[in-house]
C-alpha cells in the first residue's frame, strides 16, 4: 500500500498513467457498447454494465482524481461513506416491484 509517501508521488513527470487510464476507459466503454448488442437477459446485462462502470469509476478516482496518491485513511473514509449510503439507498429498490401488483 502506498501511504506516507502521500502527495509526493504525483509529481513524477510521466504523463503515461493518464494516457493509460484514458485508453483503458475508452476500451471499457467499447466493451460496454458491445455487450449491449449481445443477446442476454436484461438483468445480466445490467449487472455486467454496473460492474464495468464501477471499474471505470474506480479508475477515474484512482488516477485522474489522484486517490491512489492520497493517504489510505482518506481513501477508506471516502469510499466507505460512498458505499454505505449507496448500498443503503438500494434497500428501497425491491419496494418498486410492488407497483406491479397494486391497482392494476
Amino acid at each position: 500500500m502506498n501511504d506516507s509517501s502521500a502527495t509526493s508521488a504525483e509529481h513524477s513527470d510521466s504523463l503515461k498513467p493518464y494516457m493509460g487510464t484514458w485508453l483503458a476507459l475508452l476500451a471499457l466503454t467499447l466493451l460496454e457498447v458491445a455487450l449491449g448488442y449481445v443477446s442476454m437477459s436484461q438483468e445480466l446485462l445490467m449487472t455486467l454494465l454496473l460492474c464495468l462502470s464501477v471499474v471505470k469509476a474506480a479508475l477515474i478516482m484512482a488516477y485522474f482524481m489522484h486517490l491512489k496518491h492520497e493517504k489510505l485513511t482518506f481513501v477508506v473514509t471516502l469510499v466507505a461513506s460512498l458505499l454505505f449510503i449507496m448500498v443503503a439507498l438500494c434497500g428501497l429498490l425491491p419496494d418498486g416491484l410492488r407497483m406491479l401488483t397494486l391497482g392494476r
Binding site: 443503503a88 439507498l89 428501497l92 419496494d95 418498486g96 410492488r98 407497483m99
Partner: peptide, 12 residues
C-alpha cells in the same frame, strides 16, 4: 408514478 417513492426518499 409512485407516491411511496417520495416516502422512501423523504424518510431516508
Amino acid at each position: 408514478g409512485s407516491p411511496l417513492l417520495w416516502q422512501h426518499l423523504f424518510w431516508f
